[in-house]
Simulated assay, not measured.
Amino acid sequence: MRIVVALLLLLLSLAPVHAVAPDEVLDDPALETRARALSAGLRCMVCQNQSIDDSDAPLARDLRILLRERLVAGDSDEEVIAFLVDRYGEFILLRPQFNLKTALLWLAPAILLVVGAIIAFGVFRRRRPVAVSGLSGDEEAELQRILSDGKNG
């Protein structure tokens, strides 16, 4: 029984934690669902690698409230995102849009992978196999002496 309880506690601790306070939740379930979907894709400007939905920072709370105010005012999802990007820049997006300014950000991993593969191919291609020659007569005699000493010792 203890194992089951421990496993349940472990599973609960792995569940995503949302920092949305009860007083922030909208009465309209459809608007709240939209708000949650939008806030999951917005970066907390304090935490930087958390969404505003997951962050406890005061600025994240302010952004969640602002987002919900815009939705209640009738803004579409695109209008809310455009408003926040205009105000805070594209850095607020956890997944920046692909455009000329962010092309390097999106393409850098593929470019680095290709460059690395080309370098690795060139390095391995230039390596020459090391020619293994047999032992000379003196080396063969020394090896036999060492082996026979090891058997006798």
Rank of each mutant, 00 (worst) to 15 (best):
L94I: 09
G122T: 04
S148M: 07
Q97L: 14
L63A: 05
V17I: 05
D149Y: 11
Q48W: 08
V115Y: 06
P109Q: 07
I65G: 02
L11F: 15
K101V: 15
E79K: 12
I119D: 03
D56G: 14
F121L: 13
R125W: 03
L59I: 11
P109W: 11
D28A: 12
V85H: 06
I92M: 07
E140H: 08
Q97C: 07
A30G: 08
A110G: 13
E24S: 08
R2I: 09
A19S: 11
V130D: 08
D75Q: 12
V46R: 05
G150F: 08
A82T: 12
D28I: 02
A103K: 01
D75E: 11
S51L: 06
S76T: 15
D27K: 11
M45V: 10
L107K: 03
S136W: 14
L135S: 12
V46C: 01
R125M: 01
E24H: 11
L104R: 04
A141N: 10
L71S: 08
T102R: 13
R127V: 12
V85T: 13
A57N: 10
F83G: 07
T33Q: 15
A110K: 02
S51N: 02
A57I: 04
I119S: 02
V114S: 04
Q48D: 11
E78R: 05
L105S: 07
R36K: 13
V85K: 03
G137S: 12
A21M: 11
R87Q: 13
R2F: 12
D28G: 10
I111P: 00
S76F: 09
V5D: 14
M45I: 13
D86E: 12
D149V: 10
V80H: 05
V72S: 01
F121D: 12
D86R: 09
L59D: 09
R145C: 00
D86F: 09
A19I: 00
L112W: 04
R70A: 04
G116Q: 02
G89I: 06
L94K: 13
R43L: 03
G41I: 00
I52V: 15
E78I: 00
